[in-house]
Amino acid sequence: MRTIAIIGNSPHTYPDLQIYKNDVDIWIGADRGSIELIRQKVPVDYAIGDFDSTTEEERGIIKDYCNEFEEYPSEKDETDLELALLKAFSLQPQCILLFGVTGGRLDHELVNIQLLYKIVCNNIKGSIIDKNNVLELTMPGTHKISADAYYPTVSFIPYTKVVKGLSLTGFYYPLTKQDITWGSTLCISNKLIGKNGTFSYEEGILLLVKSRDTIQK
Score class of each variant (00 low, 15 high):
residue 74 S to R: 12
residue 52 D to W: 11
residue 92 Q to S: 15
residue 17 L to H: 10
residue 139 M to Y: 02
residue 190 N to L: 05
residue 43 P to T: 09
residue 170 G to P: 10
residue 89 F to T: 03
residue 51 F to K: 12
residue 181 T to M: 15
residue 118 K to Y: 14
residue 116 L to V: 05
residue 132 N to R: 11
residue 130 D to E: 07
residue 173 Y to S: 02
residue 130 D to R: 08
residue 32 R to D: 10
residue 35 I to M: 15
residue 110 L to K: 10
residue 138 T to G: 08
residue 158 P to L: 08
residue 63 K to L: 13
residue 165 G to V: 00
residue 94 Q to G: 15
residue 189 S to N: 10
residue 37 L to N: 07
residue 168 L to H: 00
residue 22 N to D: 12
residue 86 L to T: 13
residue 112 N to W: 00
residue 188 I to C: 06
residue 61 I to M: 07
residue 93 P to S: 09
residue 104 G to Q: 08
residue 175 L to V: 03
residue 69 F to W: 07
residue 113 I to Q: 13
residue 161 K to N: 09
residue 70 E to D: 12
residue 39 R to V: 10
residue 27 W to L: 04
residue 120 V to W: 06
residue 72 Y to Q: 11
residue 186 L to F: 15
residue 118 K to I: 10
residue 115 L to Y: 11
residue 167 S to T: 04
residue 116 L to A: 09
residue 149 A to R: 14
residue 93 P to L: 05
residue 207 L to S: 09
residue 38 I to H: 01
residue 86 L to W: 12
residue 77 D to Y: 14
residue 191 K to M: 06
residue 170 G to D: 05
residue 79 T to P: 01
residue 51 F to V: 14
residue 43 P to I: 08
residue 127 S to C: 09
residue 107 D to T: 02
residue 21 K to D: 09
residue 212 R to K: 15
residue 90 S to E: 01
residue 62 I to H: 05
residue 146 S to W: 14
residue 172 Y to A: 13
residue 181 T to L: 13
residue 78 E to P: 03
residue 95 C to Y: 03
residue 164 K to H: 02
